[in-house]
């Protein structure tokens, strides 16, 4: 009975919790700006509203435009199967699965970019070019982080890496570097400030939002849900590393994990309220900085 309940909690946390994190970020930003802000459940309401609407399609688009959101969501759903949640290994866990997770996110990006280019709009082309630029520059940093974790945990399945790395002797300094680098990469990959501003109203300054400008209705719902899941994937990696090792009760671990992801969402809200967006030409420096940090982390554990 208890294993079944835990598995259900795991699934619910992975599938239903992520939109709440977006609501939380919005709420924190609103409060810091002196507004009341939308209710926490607003992202769920948005998804329901979008799913009930029709879509408007451009004459220029082909089947790829409709396939983009579907493949994008499917790839992120598949990545969730690999992701360890609250100390529980992902249902699909094997040596090298961290590569599969990163590349599945790559599949989602590839098809989102193609759907953007399918509209023939120069704004969406611009967003697509920025997206592939920043994400490919983020890739080495992300891999340095994962390689350092694997070296600490002496194994290459993500669940093992996340659960064993913090307990390895002398991991402390490297772990801090990896955690900071992961947070920066999470901000970049999920189109948050200081890389991208999800709340901007000027298409010329956007990255992710401008790519999905022509999507509407259920397509946009799939994209928004996929984006929430992707944010959750990154926050779950960091939260998994921060989970207190002394906590052994699996139920409590799940609760602590959920609280940690919520705390990270609040932190993102704080970052978004306190910082300005970087100029686009300076974003690569931020990403190289993250790669250097995580590279140092890797060299620390390689000694």
């Amino acid at each position: 009975m208890i294993p079944v309940a835990l598995a259900l909690a795991h699934a619910a946390l992975a599938l239903l919790w992520p939109p709440l994190l977006l609501g939380l970020i919005g709420r924190v930003k609103a409060r810091l700006a002196g507004r009341v802000g939308p209710p926490l459940v607003q992202p769920y309401r948005d998804l329901r509203k979008l799913l009930q609407k029709g879509s408007v399609y451009s004459r220029t688009t082909s089947w790829l435009f409709r396939a983009g959101p579907v493949v994008g969501l499917a790839a992120v759903l598949c990545a969730l199967l690999i992701l360890p949640v609250g100390g529980r290994p992902g249902p699909l866990s094997f040596p090298g699965d961290f590569v599969a997770l990163v590349y599945l996110l790559g599949v989602a990006r590839f098809f989102t970019v193609l759907a953007a280019l399918d509209t023939g709009s120069s704004f969406e082309g611009m967003g697509a070019a920025r997206e592939v630029t920043f994400s490919s520059l983020a890739e080495p940093g992300l891999f340095f982080c994962l390689l350092a974790l694997g070296r600490m945990a002496s194994g290459w399945s993500l669940s093992r890496m996340i659960s064993l790395a913090p307990a390895s002797p002398g991991a402390g300094p490297a772990l801090v570097l990896v955690g900071v680098a992961l947070l920066v990469i999470a901000l970049a990959e999920n189109a948050r400030i200081p890389v991208d501003d999800p709340a901007t109203h000027l298409e010329l300054t956007m990255i992710h939002e401008v790519m999905v400008l022509d999507h509407g209705g259920p397509d946009l719902a799939l994209i928004s849900y996929g984006a929430a899941l992707k944010l959750f994937v990154f926050l779950a990696l960091i939260a998994g590393l921060a989970l207190p090792p002394g906590l052994v009760d699996p139920g409590l671990r799940l609760v602590a994990f959920a609280a940690l992801t919520a705390a990270l969402a609040v932190a993102i809200g704080l970052v978004e309220s306190l910082m300005a967006r970087l100029r686009l030409v300076n974003v690569p420096q931020l990403l190289v900085g993250a790669a250097v940090l995580s590279g140092f982390g890797l060299i620390l554990v390689l000694r």
Binding site: L51, Q52, K53, G54, S55, V56, Y57, S58, R59, T60, T61, R66, P69, V70, V71, L73, A74, A75, L77, C78, T119, G120, S121, L213, D214, G217, P218, D219, A221, L222
Partner: peptide
């Protein structure tokens, strides 16, 4: 997973979907 996402998309898109020029 792609089939599942496609099924969700199919089940949702009931409202009329006009075709226009790219915005």
């Amino acid at each position: 997973a792609a089939l599942l996402a496609w099924a969700i998309r199919r089940a949702a898109g009931r409202a009329p979907s006009p075709t226009v020029a790219t915005w």
